[in-house]
C-alpha cells in the first residue's frame, strides 16, 4: 500500500476506534472497567510506525476521546501527545528492550493518563476517593490495557508486515 495512503488512513481509523471505544467497548466491562482502546492503539501505532504517524494517531485519538468525554479536553489531547512522544523516544533509544517496550509502555502510559486525570479532578476541587479509584479503576485498567496491547501490538505488526513498506533484512 502506498505510504501516503497509509499515513492518511491513520486519521479515520483512529477516529473509528474512538467511536468503538465509546460504544462497543464501553459495554465490555471486565473487573468493572472498560479497556482504553484508543490509548492502547495510539501507543501501538507509535511503536510500529514511529513518528510522525504515531503522533498523528495520538492527536486524532486524543481529540476523539476528548470530544466524546466530559473531561478536560485540552488535558486529554496533551496527555495523548505527551505519551506518544515519550513512547517514541523510549522505543528509539532503548533498542535492547525492544521485546518488552510495548508492555512497559502501556503500563507507564495508563498510569500517566489515569494519574493526571485524578490529579486534575483533585486540583479542580472535585470530591475524589483516591484509594477507591486506584483499586476499582487504575489497577484493573492497567491489567486490561496490558492484555489488550498483547493483541493489538501483534495484530499491528502482522498488518504492518502485510500492508506496510517492504523491509530490508541484513543477511
Amino acid at each position: 500500500m502506498n505510504n501516503n495512503i497509509r499515513f492518511y488512513l491513520t486519521i479515520p481509523l483512529v477516529a473509528l476506534l474512538g467511536l468503538v471505544q465509546s460504544t462497543l467497548f464501553s459495554e465490555l466491562r471486565i473487573f468493572d472497567v472498560s479497556p482504553d482502546l484508543v490509548l492502547v492503539a495510539a501507543t501501538t501505532w507509535v511503536l510500529i510506525r514511529d513518528q510522525p504517524e504515531g503522533l498523528l494517531a495520538a492527536v486524532v485519538g486524543g481529540a476523539v476521546v476528548a470530544a466524546l468525554s466530559g473531561g478536560p479536553r485540552l488535558l486529554i489531547v496533551l496527555i495523548f501527545c505527551g505519551c506518544s512522544i515519550l513512547v517514541g523516544y523510549a522505543h528509539r533509544h532503548l533498542p535492547q528492550m525492544a521485546g518488552i517496550i510495548p508492555y512497559l509502555s502501556i503500563i507507564a502510559v495508563t498510569l500517566i493518563y489515569k494519574g493526571l486525570l485524578i490529579f486534575w479532578l483533585q486540583t479542580t476541587g472535585k470530591t475524589v476517593y483516591i484509594p477507591g479509584l486506584i483499586i476499582q479503576n487504575v489497577i484493573p485498567a492497567v491489567l486490561l490495557n496490558l492484555l489488550l496491547v498483547v493483541i493489538t501490538y501483534h495484530l499491528g505488526v502482522w498488518i504492518d508486515k502485510r500492508f506496510g513498506p517492504p523491509t530490508v533484512d541484513w543477511q
Partner: peptide, 14 residues
C-alpha cells in the same frame, strides 16, 4: 443511549 464517556473518571452519556 448511543455512546458513553470513553474515560472512566467522567460519567457522561451520549
Amino acid at each position: 443511549v448511543i455512546g458513553r464517556d470513553p474515560s472512566e473518571f467522567f460519567k457522561y452519556l451520549i
